Computed example of a mutant assay.
Amino acid sequence: MVKEYLTVEQLDQIGLPPIIPYAAPVMFALVLGEWALGLYKKRNVYHNKDFWAATAIGLTNVIISALIKVATFGFALFFYNLVPWTVPSKWWSYVLCLIVIDFCRYWAHRIAHEQRFWWATHVTHHSSKQYNFSVSFRLGWTQHIKIIFFIPAFLAGFHPVVFFICHQIEVLYQFWIHTEFIRKLPKPIEYIFVTPSHHRVHHAINDKYLDKNYGSTLVIWDRIFGTFQPEEERPIYGITKPVNSFNPVYLVFHEWMDIFKDISKAGSLKKTFKILFGRP
């Protein structure tokens, strides 16, 4: 099969199905439903300032994604065009691409918890002491640099359109697992897929829950690589060093500011490297 080399212009002309924007009304309806259910059950599910901070962070992320779309396409195409092979755009290639992306997301997520530089791109998502659907909106504005973790998917030869569709599906999957109202699901589902129960553990700061359950859609990677932890005691959410702010800009950049402060006092390249890539 002769490979068709693509340009950014061609990819832009093809267009991508805006799966997440189409899903947005449903997502906000579910947020409203979760909020109403919390009131009915007299549970403090939503904190007003926390919710609006998450919404502001999420909407800004949508704008940033639109602004850097050409750069993102260009990055993907560079590596896709680098290899002479391609994966045919058949139904099974979407399934295979989802699995490859999910594997990449596992390692991107794990490294974001194990190295401070990458933690700065991710900490925003964990800084809420609440756990509800709106937490899925809290994605750091610098997270887009983590596209480098998906180079293997581009080099595998997946068409960029296939990649971006599958990646939107992966991102959308994250929404429904951010809730306390869905308890444990039947064992076959809990064994293979990431569920709200698994992800509650991931967002918790309980000692036994720290740095567990990195899976995005499939929890099998955690089982294979020894990072799986079932939900047992009640999770306590947030980060070990609370931010205590609802300012969206501060929530996104506070860890970056701390890193720069520490680097300014480092005094050597060795210490600077340790600050950047040591554990958070």
Rank of each mutant, 00 (worst) to 15 (best):
P186W: 15
D207N: 11
I148H: 09
S245G: 03
I236Y: 07
L172N: 11
F133H: 15
W119D: 12
F103I: 00
L98K: 03
A156H: 04
I177C: 09
F79D: 00
I111N: 05
F163L: 14
T124D: 06
D211R: 12
T55H: 03
R138N: 06
I182K: 01
K41E: 11
I151P: 04
I224M: 05
K208S: 12
D222K: 04
L98C: 08
I14S: 07
G58K: 10
H109A: 12
Y22E: 06
A24D: 03
V219Q: 11
S134G: 11
R223A: 07
L30Y: 13
H122K: 08
S93M: 13
Q143K: 05
K90M: 14
K261A: 15
R183Y: 08
K274M: 07
H122T: 00
V62K: 02
H203M: 02
M27S: 05
I68V: 11
L6W: 14
K241P: 03
F228I: 03
I101Q: 06
V26I: 11
T121H: 12
H167F: 13
E233N: 13
L67H: 08
A53H: 11
H109D: 14
P230K: 14
R138I: 09
I111L: 15
F253W: 14
L67E: 14
L82W: 11
G238M: 15
C166W: 11
I165N: 05
Y214D: 03
V70C: 04
T195V: 04
P84R: 00
A266N: 07
H47A: 06
P17N: 08
A23L: 10
V194L: 04
A56V: 10
I99M: 12
E180K: 15
T195I: 05
D102E: 02
I236T: 06
L6K: 00
G38V: 08
G74S: 04
R234W: 04
A266Q: 06
H254V: 01
